[in-house]
Every structure is written in C-alpha cells, then in structure tokens.
C-alpha cells in the first residue's frame, strides 16, 4: 500500500527521518531538557515515526477494493464503540493485521484513532494513540501465521496488546502532568488506570473469544471471493 504519492518525497523522508530528524529532535530536547520539554520532544518523535511508517509502505498491486475494506474496518471499529460493552478497536486491528497483513493493520489502528477522536475529542494524545494502535496492527501482521492458526494465540496477543496500549497511553498521561517523566508518577498512573486496563483486557478477551474466528473467516472469504 503506497500511502505517499510522490516517490521522491517518500525516499527523502525515509532517509531523513531516522537519521536526521529524530536525532535532531532528541538532541535539541536534551539540550533544553532543564526547561522540561519532554512532552513536545516525545510528540515530535511520535509524529515523525508515524510518518516514517507511512513512507515505508511500498507500492503493491492492490486496487480500490483493499482501500475500501480498510475503510470499512476502520469505520466498524469506531462504530462498534457505540454498542455497549464493546471497545473493539484493538481487537479489530489485531484481526485485520493477522488476516490482511501488517500494513493494513497499521492503517486500521492509526486511522481508527484519528476518526474515533473526531467523536471523542482530538488532542495532543491523538498521535500517541495512532502509533500505539498502529504498531499493534503491524505486529499482528508480522505474527499472522501463529495468530491465524490458534484462537488462544490471538486472544493472548489481543489481551497483551490491550495492556501495552494502556501502558503506552499512561506514558502520555505522565508526560502531560509534569512535563517530566518520573517513575513514581508513572507507577501511580498505572495503578489508577488499573480498573480501566482490566476492563479493557476483559473486553478484548471476550471480543476476540467470540469474534476472532468468525471475523477472520469473513475476511478470508472476501479475500478469496473478490481477490482483494
């Protein structure tokens, strides 16, 4: 899936971001560290790595159909949040990653974050959510063989990624409180978020337990029938 149109821009960014821009941001951040601008530096690095992922997606012979399927999965994961007891973003991202590949998984996770925040509020946390959910989808794509083979594997992956997601978002919470990262504050944030995290893990567990197989089969079927 080639996301950025101009080939020149893609190549330039692919080299510039990891070797020039991210080091520059970190070094500048270190130099002004006494003024405590961790939040801004982290935000810059997160945005740049999002861009890096989007640049590295290569051209693939896929038509409109795959794009539309990704749009459908994004919309389903956002619309699913309106059904009570369901928080299906993580689970659907995992399923998409496992059955349609890591790039689609990344896009579904990242875009679901943007679009659900149109309803639940945009903010500086949006890039963090995008990166966290995107990476969950990307790794699901890399682990697609074992994840597709057993239901236990996909459930374990989903629950773990739900917990990791909460942990990553707590880093953002800590950075926003104090503009400085302290372990004691991070521990406190993790502790206060514990009920949330537990609920999230349980909901992921139930969702994947009920839906991983049937949804996977549906995606497989669409893939076979229409040659996505």
């Amino acid at each position: 899936m080639m996301v950025i149109k101009s080939a020149r821009l893609r190549t330039v960014l692919r080299w510039l971001i990891p070797f020039v821009l991210i080091p520059t941001a970190v070094i500048v951040g270190l130099l002004v560290l006494e003024q405590r601008q961790h939040l801004l530096v982290t935000l810059a690095v997160v945005l740049l790595s999002l861009l890096l992922f989007l640049c590295s997606f290569e051209k693939r012979a896929v038509g409109v159909r795959r794009q539309v399927i990704i749009a459908v999965m994004v919309a389903l994961s956002v619309a699913g949040r309106f059904i009570p007891f369901f928080k299906p973003v993580t689970a659907l991202t995992v399923i998409t990653g496992a059955y349609l590949g890591g790039e689609s998984g990344f896009l579904v996770g990242a875009l679901a974050a943007v679009i659900s925040n149109f309803y639940f509020g945009q903010g500086p946390w949006t890039p963090f959510q995008m990166l966290a959910w995107g990476l969950i989808g990307l790794f699901a794509g890399l682990l697609s063989q074992p994840l597709r083979r057993s239901r236990a594997a996909i459930i374990v992956y989903g629950v773990i990624s739900g917990i990791v997601y909460s942990a990553v978002m707590d880093v953002w919470t800590v950075l926003s409180y104090d503009s400085g990262f302290t372990w004691s504050l991070y521990g406190a944030a993790l502790l206060t978020a514990l009920p949330h995290t537990a609920l999230y893990a349980v909901s992921n567990f139930i969702f994947l337990w009920l839906c991983a197989r049937p949804f996977g089969e549906k995606l497989e079927r669409v893939k076979k029938k229409y040659g996505v």
């Binding site: 996301v3 950025i4 459908v72 619309a79 875009l111």
Partner: peptide, 15 residues
C-alpha cells in the same frame, strides 16, 4: 496522500 485521504473520507462516511 490520495489513498490515505480516500480511506479517511470513506471511513468518516461509514461511521
């Protein structure tokens, strides 16, 4: 990024 824009606009309409 026309592809990203298309996916975004379709998803926004689908929700």
């Amino acid at each position: 990024s026309p592809k990203l824009a298309l996916i975004l606009s379709m998803a926004l309409r689908y929700v």
